[in-house]
Design a protein around this nucleic acid. Structure first.
Length: 327
DNA sequence: TTTGATGT
């Protein structure tokens, strides 16, 4: 039994969710090396299609055929967001877009919004030691959670949805990752960047521990790319069938994810790449549980989320996955 | 420290 399988089994038994199929995947051992090592016939949603056929997508830089589009109706209210530095966005998105649903670009992170669940599909960040430098001018307590008016009111989450729900408004792009400018940290407080998270025992402890670990990777790698998002995982119920079951909160029915993922790529000075993937249940977690217990094969997160992470990454530069050499 | 909610 591989270590990744064992860790998933541990995770599975902790959460009661049937993670085995999705998160370990019988396919993993047979296909993972193949899909990383050579073209396995997967057609990239982004790079195998004509990007221009998607109207109104603010795609910058990484796609040569695409140019920023400034006239989409939904963006009329977002004046400041149109001035987002294109070079910064292309830097954040260096390894490609995991998916193309409702992309939003902010000054220091990029996200894709899931209108049906009122929670983002994914949030992408790029961290360096420099970008995390301590700035005493930044005051987190001055930040306010604000609805994102670039989202149609039908699909926009509101503070009232979270109020008395029992869940935290948990950051996907962590506030602590964007302390260079007050404007940057404020932008992480858009409700588009929030998901309902269990507060005690999760958001305020082990999930925070994982965020701190990601920041610490900037001491090892020149560049750290991190993608964060929710999962809605199936669970075997008493009739033996699998169901995806999750709570929705507030009048806008904001979905409460069953789990959250982080996929991280560290880039060394000599351009070697190392990848790590974590999945944690949206539930209280023992503070003493090592983060390693929550590592899963990256491909299992792709299958569960319906996304392709780091599809543009040069597979021959990828040296390690979850700390294990793949060469 | 950083992560938050709640009540006055």
């Amino acid at each position: 039994m591989s270590s990744s399988w064992k860790s998933v089994m541990k995770l599975s038994s902790m959460t009661g969710a049937s993670l085995a199929g999705w998160l370990a995947g019988k396919h993993y051992e047979r296909h993972w090396s193949g899909s990383l090592g050579k073209n396995d016939g997967r057609r990239s949603f982004l790079y195998g299609t004509n990007v221009k056929s998607f109207p109104g997508l603010p795609i910058f830089g990484t796609v040569s055929a695409a140019a920023p589009i400034h006239s989409a109706d939904e963006f009329n209210e977002m004046g400041p967001k149109l001035s987002v530095s294109e070079s910064r966005i292309s830097q954040i998105m260096k390894y490609g877009f995991p998916g193309l649903d409702n992309i939003r670009s902010y000054d220091d992170f990029v996200l894709s919004y899931d209108r049906r669940n009122r929670v983002a599909h994914w949030v992408f960040e790029h961290l360096t030691k420099e970008s995390l430098k301590k700035n005493d001018q930044i005051d987190r307590s001055k930040c306010e959670f604000v609805p994102d008016t670039s989202i149609h009111p039908f699909f926009r989450s509101q503070n009232t949805d979270y109020k008395k729900s029992g869940y935290d408004r948990g950051h996907l792009a962590a506030a602590g990752n964007h302390r260079l400018h007050q404007k940057h940290i404020q932008q992480t407080f858009y409700l588009t960047n929030m998901a309902p998270q269990v507060g005690a025992g999760f958001n305020r402890s082990s999930w925070n521990r994982l965020e701190i670990y990601v920041r610490s990777l900037t001491n090892i790698y020149k560049d750290v790319y991190v993608c964060t998002g929710p999962l809605y995982l199936p669970k075997v119920e008493s009739d033996g069938k699998k169901y995806v079951r999750y709570e929705v909160i507030g009048s806008n029915h904001v979905a409460v994810p069953t789990h959250f993922y982080k996929i991280i790529v560290g880039e060394t000075k000599d351009l070697k790449l190392e990848m790590e993937a974590f999945v944690m249940p949206n539930a209280p977690i023992d503070d003493d549980a090592p983060l390693k217990n929550f590592q899963v094969p990256p491909e299992s997160v792709e299958r569960a989320a319906g996304l392709l992470f780091f599809d543009k990454l040069s597979k021959n530069k990828l040296h390690k996955i979850n700390g294990k050499s793949i060469k």
